[in-house]
Every structure is written in structure tokens, then in C-alpha cells.
């Protein structure tokens, strides 16, 4: 913990590149939406959102250096959301496929 930066400038040096990356991803995302593909555009949009979320989680929310317990809590949220999505969409998709 004390290995981190100890001046305001060092803090900015650590966090500003992440912000710049986020902005770049946002610009890419807005541009990619106008590509002439259909599914690929959607996939790109959500993949970029996932990348942005990853940056915020790991650096801004400090998951990178968080305790195992905190990571477990974060993972639980995602895992249970996956249960909700998987089983519900199993029904929705098979109903759509079945007409």
C-alpha cells in the first residue's frame, strides 16, 4: 500500500493514462457503431463497454490490489447475474426458436 505514489503529480501520472484510454475507447465505440455490419457492431459495442468496465474496476475501483474477499464479492455479483441471464435466456431463446 505504501509502495504507491506519494505526490499529487504521481497520482495523476497513475490515473490520467487510464482516463485517456477510456476516452479513446469511447471514441472507438461511437465510431464502430457506424460500421456497415450488424452483429459485429453490437459485439464491438459491448466488448468495448466490457473493456472500459475492466479498466474502471481494476484501477479506479482498485480491484487490482484488493483482498481476495473483495474480489470474491465482485465475482459473486457477476456469477449470479450470469445465472439469471443464462436460465432466463434459455427459455426465451428456445421459445423464439420454437416459433
Amino acid at each position: 500500500m505504501s509502495a504507491g505514489p506519494d505526490t499529487p503529480a504521481a497520482l495523476w501520472r497513475r490515473n490520467l493514462p487510464v482516463w485517456a484510454a477510456l476516452m479513446a475507447l469511447l471514441a472507438l465505440s461511437a465510431w464502430a457503431a457506424y460500421w456497415p455490419f450488424k452483429t459485429l457492431n453490437t459485439v464491438t459495442g459491448f466488448a468495448i463497454a466490457g473493456a472500459k468496465a475492466g479498466l474502471v474496476l481494476l484501477v479506479f475501483m482498485q480491484l487490482r490490489r484488493a483482498s481476495g474477499l473483495v474480489r470474491l464479492a465482485a465475482a459473486c455479483g457477476l456469477f449470479w447475474a450470469a445465472i439469471l441471464f443464462t436460465l432466463t435466456l434459455a427459455d426465451v431463446l428456445s421459445r423464439l426458436a420454437g416459433g
Binding site: 436460465l87 434459455a90 427459455d91 428456445s94 421459445r95 420454437g98
Partner: peptide
């Protein structure tokens, strides 16, 4: 297991 409340609700038979 929540889907067992919905067997007769029009859920797909696979689910």
C-alpha cells in the same frame, strides 16, 4: 430452480 413455478405458464418445454 425458480422455473418450476412456471411449468404451466407458457415457458418452453426445454427450459
Amino acid at each position: 430452480t425458480w422455473g418450476h413455478h412456471m411449468f404451466t405458464s407458457g415457458m418452453s418445454s426445454y427450459a
